[in-house]
Simulated scan of single mutants.
Amino acid sequence: MKRHFPYFLTALAAIVLDQISKWAILARFHDFERLNIIPQFFDLTLVYNYGAAFSFLANHNGWQKYFFIVLAFVISGWLVNEIRKGSMGKLGNFAAAMIIGGAFGNVIDRFIHGKVVDFILVYYQDWYYPAFNVADSFICVGAALLIIDGIKQAKKAKQAA
């Protein structure tokens, strides 16, 4: 357990940072309000996502909320097991912890609000990246690091063979 503590702490930090940022936005913004931070590039706003990435399945009657909660638990359980087994490198373990923390940050929203709070808006002229949040950032960075770790682990295995 002691050797897994840094990963548990990383997941917890992701959840706490995500929830604090969402509480701050919810306390300051009205729905769809925008505050320009960097002209023509970055705004803070308050929008909601009933689906997943890029509002996937957002326009359904609510079953998707439970689907994404179950999916977060299943994937997080699998990642916890991978950390426990030691099948990934240190980078992979931190990446998995980031994904777990991000997933549970969004699960908390689904339980409390019935939807995910998004507030980071990046754009350039007429191009807009869909609004996202701190949890989404942890998930994306964690996924990228998990891929990098997988490549590193495959190279190690190939060299050992």
Score class of each variant (00 low, 15 high):
Met1Pro: 08
His4Ile: 05
Phe5Arg: 06
Thr10Asp: 03
Asp18Met: 01
Ile25Val: 15
His30Ala: 15
Glu33Ala: 10
Glu33Gly: 02
Arg34Leu: 04
Asn36Pro: 01
Ile37Met: 09
Pro39Asp: 00
Gln40Leu: 06
Val47Glu: 10
Val47Tyr: 12
Tyr48Asp: 03
Tyr50Asp: 14
Gly51Arg: 09
Phe54Ile: 12
Phe54Pro: 08
Gln64Pro: 07
Tyr66Trp: 15
Tyr66Met: 12
Ile75Gly: 13
Ile75Asn: 13
Trp78Tyr: 15
Val80Glu: 06
Lys85Ser: 06
Gly86Met: 00
Met88Tyr: 10
Lys90Asp: 08
Leu91Arg: 11
Asn93Arg: 07
Ala95Leu: 11
Ala97Trp: 13
Ile99Asn: 02
Gly102Ser: 10
Arg110Val: 03
Ile112Phe: 04
Val116Gly: 05
Val116Phe: 09
Phe119Leu: 05
Ile120Thr: 04
Val122Asp: 10
Gln125Cys: 10
Asp126Leu: 04
Asp126Ser: 14
Tyr128Ile: 07
Tyr129Pro: 02
Asn133Thr: 03
Val134Glu: 05
Ala135Leu: 06
Phe138Pro: 04
Cys140Leu: 12
Val141Met: 12
Ile147Leu: 14
Ile148Glu: 08
Gly150Thr: 13
Gln153Thr: 14
Ala154Met: 08
Ala154Ile: 08
Ala157Ile: 13
Ala161Gly: 13
